[in-house]
Amino acid sequence: MIATSRLALWIFGLLALVFLLAPVLLILPLSFSAGSFLYYPLPGLSFRWYADFWTSGFWLPALWNSLRLGTVAALLAGVLGTLAAFGLWRGNFPGQRLVMAVLLAPMVVPVVIVAVALLLAFGPLGLTNSFLGLVLGHAALGAPFVLVTVLAALQQFDAVQLRAAAACGASPLRAFLRVCLPQIMPGVAAGAIFAFATSLDEVVVTLFLAGPAQRTLPRQMFSGLNDSISLTIMAAAMVMVLLSALLLLAVTLLRRKR
């Protein structure tokens, strides 16, 4: 009885994992097709769609934009989020619950509302069609992930060490930089990677704010999917999947370090 229910659980669970993994795994090989159909069997294998990705005027710049944007937004979110997490962890100050609600709000507000609001607010400031405007928007969306991750890392950190550092004559800043930061660094890095991934995944804010010069890879894929799906999009999907896998690997290694 128990053995059969256990077997049923395994079958169901493995089917669920197939459901999660198969769609993306099924379409990625299409990018190596020598033909231009979006189904199997492939007429032959080639790298022509990757060559297309590499040589076209917009795919490579879009990838470059995505990486640049993600890096700057993750740095900004990482610095602001780490400082705020340290502050929230250190002290009780008036209105802390409200502050926390504001800081985590970007996680629950639908991104389409953020996108339209930023379009309206940034327009008069000249921040639409600009790299800076996108950085600000993406950093706001990524900062809560840094905050949550660094707060979790700080739970493992023993506050007595800061007092010990102060007793040895270290200034609070020095104590933070030399004692606390090295220990929570894996959490900070993981948070920044989350923020980078958030930016790399983001379509809607980019859709509303970015001009042709700031098109990112997912934005380019979105317009491609809306138009007619070419196999170059599958090559772009492959690039995105490899990037995501790299980020997941980095976070997993950081977790292990902790």
């Binding site: 099924l26 995944d201 999009i233 995501s244 997941l248």
Partner: peptide, 18 residues
């Protein structure tokens, strides 16, 4: 985790192509 980290646009594209 692998699908969790895969971009939303890629997973949407996968369903479109399928």
């Amino acid at each position: 985790l692998l699908p969790f980290w895969t971009s939303l646009i890629v997973r949407t594209a996968a369903w479109m192509v399928l």
